[in-house]
Computed example of a mutant assay.
Amino acid sequence: MSQPPDIAPILTVLDEALHGGRCLEAAAALRTLSRLVPQDLRVRAALARALFAAGLWQEAWDAYEVRFELLPDIFPKVSRMGPNGPEPMPIWRGGPAPEALLVMGEQGLGDTIQFARYLPLLQARGVRVHAVLDGRIHALLAPLLAGIDLRASGTAGRVQGVKSWLPLLNLPQALGLRPQEYRGQIPYLAADGARVARWRARIGGEGLRIGIVWQGNPAAPVDRHRSAPLAAFAPIAALPGVRLFALQKGPGEDAPAPFALERLGPEMDQGPDWFLDTAAAMVALDLVVSVDTAALHVAGALGRPALLLAHGRESDWRWQQGREDTIWYPSVRLVRCPDGGADWRAAAARAAFLIRTGNLPAAA
């Protein structure tokens, strides 16, 4: 039996083309390659990345289904009772809206915050929506999802009257949205007024108040390309009149800072509900500078001015290639590490330049 061809060198060449800005060429070559080796998950994943980077969104959503084969543990399991026992429930792929629909959250908290904006669009089409999402952010999302049956993920359950379902990140495609409609109404989240008042009093009004986030979830496979050392934020800390506030929670929260950094204390987001105090503090601050993690999505959903520090080469598919803006959040600007690498201090120095010159995104 002949050995399958070694396609690793081909993927390396196409990856160079993709990150060199030749996204359409890379996508075309990967389409051909995926037809030749349709079972190769590396090729299919690279094709999805190239299609997103090229802005070929509808084709990219189809290709992005590979995520469930790459990470089978994240794929929700939904079944219904058939004549011979439990059987898979069909996924709604679009078209006439069903009377009721089960939407299952997937991946991280940031993904849920980013894509929850589309759930009310289902309601607007007369769909009775049941959403199974991470319980830690139910309180944050509750005002957005009024009238939706919101259930916590991680436990088995039964929903009556539902004949189809879909994963949360499938919503833009199933709803037939065009890329210019992905943004929707911004802001779509709001901080609690009483919390905002408390954090405004705590933070005060002096200086240019900047909240920073430097660490994502270290258990996530993508974390090595998105988390930065806290020390890398030194160029921002050195700006005259700047006050830095730590919005970091969880891993990395206690990292020592080689510059003045104001900690908001253990009472911030203490308890089972996440990001309620973070959202309020963001409203009380002038700017957020964050790596690619859930807090950045909170800032974007609130319409708060934010700079996203991103790896120069391995940034996530949703930020595309070579862009400083994003189709998701008008108040977020990308600052990429130079030379396609992970020089986070250089990215922070670029962010410091933007701050010093006032070249910042406006609040939405």
Rank of each mutant, 00 (worst) to 15 (best):
D273M: 10
H297K: 08
Y182E: 00
P229I: 08
A342L: 13
L166E: 03
M268Y: 07
G21H: 03
A28C: 06
R304Q: 10
S331T: 04
P98L: 10
G126S: 04
S34P: 04
Q320R: 13
A152V: 09
L119K: 13
P4N: 14
G135N: 13
L307R: 13
A8M: 12
N217Y: 03
D192V: 02
A191F: 01
G21P: 15
I10C: 11
A255S: 13
L36D: 15
L119F: 09
L11G: 05
G147A: 12
G157F: 07
P305D: 01
P251D: 12
L175V: 05
E314F: 12
R195F: 15
G205T: 12
L168I: 10
P120N: 01
R44M: 09
A100T: 09
A238L: 14
V132F: 07
M282S: 04
I113T: 04
W61M: 11
A347K: 00
L244G: 15
F275I: 06
A116E: 06
S164N: 09
L109N: 05
R49E: 11
A139L: 08
G176A: 06
D292P: 04
P361G: 01
L171Y: 11
G250E: 07
R158I: 15
A346T: 02
S34D: 07
P330Y: 07
A347H: 00
D339C: 05
W328N: 06
A50V: 11
L175S: 02
A124S: 11
P38D: 05
D111L: 10
K77D: 14
Y118W: 05
L14Q: 11
V289N: 07
L24C: 08
L168P: 06
E25Q: 06
R323D: 12
D273E: 15
L145H: 03
G312C: 04
M89Q: 10
G161W: 03
H311G: 00
H225Y: 14
M104C: 14
A306S: 14
A281Y: 02
A301C: 03
G105N: 14
Q114P: 12
A301Y: 00
M104H: 02
L109M: 11
